[in-house]
Design a protein around this nucleic acid. Sequence first.
DNA 1: CCCCAGTCCTGCGGGC
DNA 2: TGCCCGCAGGACTGGG
Length: 292
Amino acid sequence: MPELPEVETMRRGIAAAVGSRVADVAKLRCSRKPIEIRPGIARFRRRVQGAFIRELGRAGKRVVIWLDTDDAIVIEPRMTGLVLVADPPTVEHLRWRLDLEGGPFEAICYWDRRGLGNVRLFSRAEFDIQFGADVLGPDALSITGETYRERLGRSQREIKPALLDQRAVAGIGNLYASEILHLAGIHPQRRCRSMTERQWQAIAEATRRVLAEAIRYEGSTLGDGTYRNALNRAGGYQNKHCVYDRAGVPCPRCHAGKITRIVQTQRSTFFCPRCQTRSGHLLDATRISRVE
DNA sequence: CCCCAGTCCTGCGGGC
DNA sequence: TGCCCGCAGGACTGGG
């Protein structure tokens, strides 16, 4: 489930395509229901053919291929999408291909098992509307406690579902939300309104540290093995998870609490009831301490 | 406005 | 063994 670290790894994996020229684009026939590709492939081709790739960016959990025409190809992998420059896990789920020339890659491909993702082309003006500050919050990789407090501090919501709100902060998904709150020592059901300034700072610091570390390990490849980097290789951060999908095992930090699974807004949350108390009374020194 | 349930889709694993 | 159902959680929609 690509979140910020996985999507950032995809972006870095195709970054060497900057300077390449777009030779062609293709919607790939597979037996599945077609994914969303906009505009239609004929119009898509007319707009991108011959353009040069100027820059590779990221908008929250989307990869952005900026062209020298000022158009942006935005790839949104959602649940099971992959951006690849190597052979895909399966041929049957290949959905889209951007043929390149004059660079290290023959093509950038989009693969998607469940097909919930999409590939869309936007002008710069359209892009700014689609992914502007009104729609997408500041990037989680550089979030500050002050920004968290501004954007969520008055909310009545529980903190964990709030972290998934892409308008508040962009890039956090279900997996990293649990890991972040565990490192910060905050109970996932704490109300945003009740959080102190220091606790927002702890969450911000944990956000930056967890995400940066996950990028260093090239993301998390879970049991189903879906997520891969651009070279179709698994990530390594799943071995660093403290809580996600680890219900029943002892907490790797305190070795006393048992990782617990609850459901919030129809999503699984994992936490340590001992490290993450509702009152948040643990000492800060205990709160932020890396688990090796 | 704020927030939540339901929806899309496929493949896997648990239960019988 | 084989089938069926529930579940995984990205972002969007509709409605309370």
